[in-house]
Write a protein that binds this DNA or RNA. Structure first.
Lengths: 159, 159
DNA sequence: TGGAAGTGGTTGACGTGTCTACCAACATAG
DNA sequence: CTATGTTGGTAGACACGTCAACCACTTCCA
C-alpha cells in the first residue's frame, strides 16, 4: 500500500528543470505554429507530414509507416490525412500488395507549399532555439532526449 | 529579398537536439496525460489549473493572473474554466473591486481530486524524466530553457 | 465631463487529438 | 478449408486550443 508520505516531491532544482522545459516547449510550439500559419497556409502538423513525405524518393508512405515516423497514433493520422486530402496537400493511392492498405502521397501543391514554408520555419527554429544555445548545451539536450526516449521504449517492450 | 539559398539548414548535430527534444516532449506529455487520465479523473490541463489555485493561500485567482501563471491565452482559459466549472472542480466568484472581473476558486471536490492525483503524477514525472538524467544534465536543461524563454520575452518587448 | 482607448472576460466557429468501436483483409494452426 | 487472432485503416463522439469578434467596465485625458 502506497501512502502519500512516500511521495518524493520534486526538489527546487528538479522543479526548475521540469517547469522550464514545459514552459519553453509550450512557448516554442505556439510561436512556431503562429509563424507557420502567418507565413504559409500550413499548420505545424501539416508541415511535419509534408517533411516526412518529401523525404521519401517517391514522395509517399504507407499510413502506418508515416505514423511510426511521426510518433502518431493511427487514428490521429487518419483524421489529419483526411483533412489534408480535402485541402489538396496529399492524396491517397491504392496499395496493390496489401488490399487493406493504402499510400499517402504528396501532391504537386503539397510540394509547392512546403518548399515555400520550410525556409521561414527553419529560420524561426534557429532564431528562437538553436542559435541561442551553446553547441555543448544542444548536445546535452540531445543526449538527454535520447536517453529518456530509449528508456520509455524499454518500458514499453518490458510491459 | 531573401532567397532559399540563404537558409542555414540545421546541421546533423543541431537537428539531433531539435528532433530529440520534440519527440521527447511529445512522448512525455502523452504518457503523463494517459497516466493522469487512468489514475484520476483529471486531464493534464485540469491538473495544472488546480495546482496553481491550491498554491494560493485563499485557493483562488483572477482569471488573468491564472492565465499569466500558466502561459495560457485568455480565451483558452475561459473555455477550460467553463468545462471545469461544469464538472464541479472550480467555481466562479464575484470580484467586488472591479465589476468586470471575477475569481476562479477551487472547490472542495477540486481539492480532493488533485490531492488524490498529485502523488501518482509526481511519481510518473520522476520515473519518466527526472530520475533518468544526471543532476548536471537537469541544470543544463533548466539554464537552456530560461535562456530561451528570456530571449523570447525580450523579443516580445522590443517589438 | 464625456468620449476614446484600453482591459477583463466570454462566445462561436473551426481545426486538432484521443478513445473506442468497428470493418476488411491477411496469416496461420488445426 | 475454416476458425481465430492480428494488422491496416476508418468513423464518431467528445475534449481541447486558437482566432476573431464581442460586451462590459475602467482609465485617462482633452
Amino acid at each position: 500500500m502506497i501512502f502519500m508520505t512516500d511521495v518524493r516531491w520534486l526538489t527546487e532544482r528538479e522543479a526548475r528543470a521540469w517547469r522550464g522545459l514545459q514552459f519553453m516547449q509550450m512557448r516554442l510550439e505556439a510561436e512556431l505554429a503562429r509563424q507557420l500559419a502567418t507565413e504559409s497556409g500550413l499548420s505545424y502538423p501539416d508541415y511535419l507530414v509534408l517533411v516526412a513525405l518529401t523525404d521519401q524518393p517517391d514522395g509517399r508512405l504507407r499510413p502506418f509507416e508515416l505514423g511510426d515516423l511521426l510518433g502518431w497514433e493511427k487514428s490521429r493520422l487518419s483524421h489529419h490525412v483526411a483533412r489534408m486530402t480535402d485541402r489538396g496537400l496529399v492524396k491517397k493511392e491504392r496499395c496493390t500488395s496489401d488490399r487493406r492498405g493504402a499510400f499517402v502521397a504528396v501532391t504537386a501543391k503539397g510540394r509547392r507549399e512546403i518548399e515555400a514554408a520550410a525556409p521561414g520555419h527553419v529560420r524561426a527554429v534557429r532564431e528562437l532555439f538553436i542559435d541561442r544555445l551553446a553547441p555543448e548545451a544542444l548536445d546535452v539536450i540531445a543526449d538527454s532526449a535520447e536517453k529518456v526516449l530509449a528508456e520509455m521504449e524499454d518500458d514499453r517492450l518490458r510491459s
